[in-house]
Simulated scan of single mutants.
Amino acid sequence: MTTRSAPEPTRPLPSLAGEVADKPKQPVTARGERTRSALVAAARRVFERDGFQESRLTDITAEANCSTGTFYTYFQSKEE
């Protein structure tokens, strides 16, 4: 009879840039901070207008006038 051991806790995988993959990049420039703030403000407007469940990432990025790739520079998901 063999006993199972508890699974090992998972650790975040490093990204290609050497950063931890589950930690979003924080802006280091004034422009980056403005972009991130614009995304947060756009998300609030879209959530208020459409509701969280019905909101799409493309709606948020269009409202903020930026690309989806830019969104993922600062956030991993809509939930974040």
Rank of each mutant, 00 (worst) to 15 (best):
F75D: 05
R31W: 11
P24R: 08
S67W: 01
R44K: 15
Q26W: 14
L16V: 04
T2E: 12
Y72Q: 08
D59I: 00
L57R: 03
F75A: 05
R4A: 12
T58M: 04
D50S: 03
E63V: 03
P14V: 14
E8Y: 08
K23S: 04
L16G: 01
E79A: 11
L39R: 13
S37C: 10
D22T: 14
A41Y: 11
E33V: 10
A42S: 09
V20E: 05
R56V: 00
F71A: 10
L16T: 03
P14T: 10
R31V: 11
T68F: 10
C66R: 02
Y74V: 12
D50T: 01
S37N: 09
E79N: 06
R31C: 10
P24F: 08
R56C: 02
A64I: 01
E79L: 06
L16I: 05
V40R: 14
K25E: 00
E79P: 03
T10D: 14
I60R: 09
T61R: 07
E48D: 11
D59G: 03
T73D: 12
A64E: 00
K78P: 01
R49K: 09
P9Q: 05
Q53I: 07
Q26R: 08
R34F: 09
V28T: 09
R31N: 12
R4V: 04
P27E: 08
P9D: 05
D59T: 01
E33C: 15
F75G: 04
T10A: 12
F75I: 03
S37E: 08
V46M: 00
R36K: 13
A64R: 00
P24I: 07
A38H: 15
L16F: 05
D50F: 00
R34D: 13
R36F: 07
T2S: 15
T2F: 14
D22N: 05
T61Q: 04
K25H: 11
S55M: 04
K23I: 09
A62C: 02
A64P: 01
Y74R: 10
L39M: 13
G18R: 06
E48M: 04
R4M: 03
A6V: 08
E54F: 02
L16Q: 07
E33N: 12
S55I: 00
S15M: 07
C66K: 00
K23V: 13
R45W: 01
E80S: 13
I60D: 02
R11S: 09
Y74M: 15
L13G: 11
